[in-house]
Design a protein around this nucleic acid. Structure first.
Lengths: 217, 217
DNA sequence: AATAAAAATTAGTCTTGCCTAATAAAATAT
DNA sequence: ATATTTTATTAGGCAAGACTAATTTTTATT
């Protein structure tokens, strides 16, 4: 069993490993965790001893099979709890992350599976990130942004990429929430903006930035 | 904000304060937490400094207003999560305590209230213990054990007092679970045992110990 | 290749929360 | 009232996980 701190490192290495194409270095980890690089080196040593990572100055930190399993489990729980908090407790998009950050560390062998079942086996969390399955695999992150879709069609809002209060308040003002239906009326080639209409809203023109922040399907 | 450890001390002092008639002493706390008394003394000093308790060798540890609020909040979350785990995730009576022990430390100002609402404002947890309300008050713990009831009447199982695997397996074997209806057919004065019949079960004679472990209403 | 800049590492410290051992204080028994 | 036992407290240590400062190694620049 890992400590909270160890789990946070594993999670960070997992994310950095998937994201960046370059190696997962102590400085990168330190930056992500807002820790000191010296502390990171200590921890990398510890995680190496526990066979959760392989660390090599050249290649950076790499999760072992065991480490991947542990990290994916934490990410899985994090994202499942986010779904729970949003769907069941009616929390806002901007609040769920910090709470899930705590809940992901709750341990019990069947917890993730039971929660998954209770929530109806969701594939994505409310931020559009795929939820790892029990086997560690995850749905291909096939997110389409509103910006990419064709004019004239209807879509459903699946998630959002931006969780700033400003954006969320704007969405609220437009009557858009997760699950809302949107119709794309027109795409303006000039600046990437588009005219859309929410189920029970007026026609509005939204910016390219807006379009890129809304995930639909 | 308190650390996990501080929260566990507060919770323990809260419970010991309600239960026992005598003072909450370092040894009593140490025993409950399976800690060394010396460690307890350290922590009592710390909690005193934080104005969460008053400690006096004569009177023992007493929660301040602030301490009561903090402790009740933890207990509230613990018991609400127990209800969640049992009702929503279908965990067994014997498993929920340890998980709730972890979940009670998740912080967010509205969390308890939202969870409470989601669960339909339950008054008792699955072990029959009253759930503190948002204001810190709790329903009078008016638990009737099966042992105390009259013969000839029907009751509903509200909770259980004993959570040993042996007892829970026995219940399962008898087809009894939370919410089950029971009919008390006969009470045997000789040894306090009684003949009962579960909704879809046969007549069985159960011991006094059994009767005292089942809470009904 | 020499030098400057950035990254990694080591050494030493701090805080939290626990421990053991030793001592002081209080309660209980004789 | 004194001796014994129990309880509380102090002192000193330890491990985890963070930090700063100093040093070494690596990478980039000229």
């Amino acid at each position: 069993m890992q400590s909270f701190s160890e789990e946070n490192y594993l999670k960070t290495i997992y994310h950095l490993g998937l994201k960046g194409s370059d190696k997962v270095s102590p400085t990168a980890i330190a930056e992500a965790l807002k820790n000191n690089p010296a502390s990171v080196v200590d921890m990398l040593k510890k995680l190496s001893d526990k066979k959760l990572i392989n660390y090599d100055k050249k290649k950076g930190a790499r999760l072992t099979e065991k480490g991947i399993k542990a990290a994916a489990d934490i990410v899985r729980k994090h994202r499942l709890w986010e779904v729970f908090l949003l769907q069941k407790l009616d929390y806002g998009w901007d609040e769920i992350h910090d709470i899930a950050e705590q809940m992901e560390h709750v341990h019990h062998k069947e917890l993730a599976d039971r929660l998954d079942k209770f929530l109806g086996y969701p594939d994505f969390d409310p931020h559009g990130d795929p939820i790892p399955k029990a086997n560690g695999k995850m749905a291909q992150t096939f997110k389409t942004t509103l910006f990419e879709v064709e004019a004239g069609k209807k879509y459903r809002v699946l998630a959002v990429k931006d969780t700033s209060p400003e954006f969320l308040q704007y969405l609220q003002k437009l009557g858009i929430t997760i699950g809302s239906k949107l119709k794309v009326l027109e795409k303006i080639a000039f600046d990437g903006s588009m005219v859309i209409q929410a189920a029970k809203g007026d026609k509005v023109n939204v910016s390219r930035k807006f379009g890129e922040s809304v995930l639909v399907g």
